[in-house]
Design a protein around this nucleic acid. Structure first.
Lengths: 335, 335
DNA sequence: CTGAAAGCGCTTACAG
DNA sequence: CTGAAAGCGCTTACAG
């Protein structure tokens, strides 16, 4: 049993399928009486217009392709939440795909999006997002990058201000009286990591605190890598009294490393994160961090994309300012 | 500039568009030489077949509609992760929609899914999921429910065994020596809540511990509601020495309530959750809870849906057994 | 106001 | 092996 089509309605209502199409779309050409009669028939028949057929002629799918590395990541969950919400409000559907940060898979996704003829693409936290733009150019599918590594010049993007956030976090530690401040970064090659590290260094410089190479350690953006890195830092002759972490996930690892060594936070060690994942307020002590307005960034990214689709070009790059949230994991140094 | 179509390729390759279509689909009718030549032209022209046009004739979209209450919820994030992953592996796309637990919105989503002619629908944690089935029946769109309230008999579903999990959690508290064990539930009317409460009561009964009405409190499945509920419990003449919570989010609220009163966990109060959200291992103390294999449940739900689509009917209802994860938030009672 | 016709980009039985 | 034709379910200029 196939779905009821415009032709079925036409037959039952005793008009042509053109008239049905117009009536269902509230065309001003059709008088109210006829329109209502046809709509009633459609409803009785449980008619649901085929978006497929419509898309074929209108060349619009009202679908947006969204790529994230992983949707299990709480950061991305909130971002996608904002995206979906503002898209849904204006009749756009979200086709969600996860890249696992695998470039090969990312390219397969772009292909799939092209075949599905999505109206636009949104890519979050990708390392190669800018390449998407190129690949989508021939179909004129616009793309918006969110917190992308290497946004590229000619691409629409919205990004957290990594340097400013990192500088504010580090200055907070300096203001508390810390002089031995370490930074635990992400894996090599991430632009966001380079920018946060730069912000950290800038804060030290402004404060007249000499930069010490041994206070910069590399993690992996997750608890495990940061735990090890923190372990090495805490074993230093002169261990840091505060650690600024690339992100909250890393801070989790630092907290673990401290706990396993009997190092008390914040008494013996201040810890600051970045992102403000929702659960960080429930840690003990609650985590001081830089708040990223994740849902709002998702909303803005979608709005930017929608405005591109509706023809009103807008600012190419939007930079969002994070906000320092001071909680219990940072305090004055002991000595 | 429209996308290049099968006709463009045909013209360039000097064959009919039928032949192009066959060559591109690797039809055995086309000899290898011709096929390769045509595929080369297609590649040169950056051809990307229109899934829209194909869907119109094949009546398959290879798209699955997925409904969750919120994708910002870490539980749903993991579930959707499993869904997307196994769907993607076999060429299915996920159209994600969030219902905000709003029945009106849910109905709009079903309509949208019907119009998009998705091949199947997956609904997580809905209160009205079973109604979807009815609405989708006329288009023969199969539906799988995941952890649904009131699955209904004739619907495919996969569900955590709420009663068994709750019973195991409660028995764990009993085994530690607790006799005054409270339960903080979800809002009224949730079947999962009723089942977990039943499991809690069953464990008490088996252990010969009298059920005390004042030890059952109502939360809202989130920290705030459970915090208040826990506050009331702790103010009782004879406060409980252990609290089993409807879920981890509720446990968060209990932990807050305890901390704000100087009640130490687990020394003064044991706390047990349900779900095993990933961050619960990082709390201090880490949370004892019932592990739900969220990603795997998502995978299984998608597999179930795929097997329905491929015609091999399967078990209607799959029940998953949770696993007790003992961590630091539960211990022996003091006295 | 209304209908017949063309066309969106494919797939696929049918004929050769 | 290959092409012409029909058709999937719509929208929309065109003619009346």
């Amino acid at each position: 049993m196939a779905a009821v089509s415009i032709k079925d309605i036409a037959r039952i209502a005793g008009v042509s399928h053109s008239t049905v199409s117009r009536a269902l779309r509230d065309s001003p050409l059709i008088p109210a009486r006829t329109r209502e009669r046809i709509q009633l028939v459609a409803q009785e028949q449980g008619y649901a217009a085929s978006a497929i057929a419509r898309s074929l002629v209108t060349r619009k799918t009202h679908a947006i392709g969204v790529v994230v590395t992983s949707i299990a990541d709480p950061f991305n969950g909130e971002v996608v939440s904002g995206i979906e919400e503002t898209g849904n409000a204006v009749g756009y559907s979200v086709v969600l795909a996860t890249s696992q940060a695998d470039p090969e898979r990312e390219m397969a996704l772009v292909r799939s999006f092209k075949e599905r003829r999505v109206d636009g693409v949104l890519v979050a936290s990708s390392r190669v997002g800018a390449l998407y733009a190129e690949s989508l150019a021939d179909l004129r599918i616009p793309i918006v990058l969110l917190n992308n590594q290497h946004p590229g010049e000619f691409v629409y993007s919205i990004t957290i201000d990594n340097a400013a956030g990192a500088e504010e976090a580090t200055r907070h530690l300096v203001d508390l009286g810390h002089r031995r401040i370490a930074y635990i970064g992400d894996r090599l090659g991430m632009q966001s990591d380079a920018e946060r590290k730069a912000g950290y260094e800038e804060a030290l410089r402004v404060s007249g605190i000499p930069f010490r190479k041994e206070y910069v350690a590399r993690g992996d953006g997750k608890p495990a890598g940061a735990r090890e890195a923190a372990g090495r830092l805490l074993e230093l002759q002169e261990p840091p009294s505060a650690i600024f972490c690339y992100n909250d996930m890393s801070a989790l690892g630092v907290l673990e490393a401290a706990a396993s060594r009997g190092v008390q936070v914040p008494r013996d060690l201040s810890v600051c994160g970045f992102d403000d994942l929702f659960f960080t307020q429930f840690l003990s002590p609650p985590l001081t961090t830089i708040h990223q307005p994740k849902r709002e960034m998702g909303q803005q990214a979608m709005q930017l994309l929608l405005s591109i689709l509706s023809g009103e070009e807008r600012r190419k790059g939007i930079k969002i300012r994070g906000e320092l949230i001071i909680r219990g994991s940072t305090g004055r140094p002991r000595e």
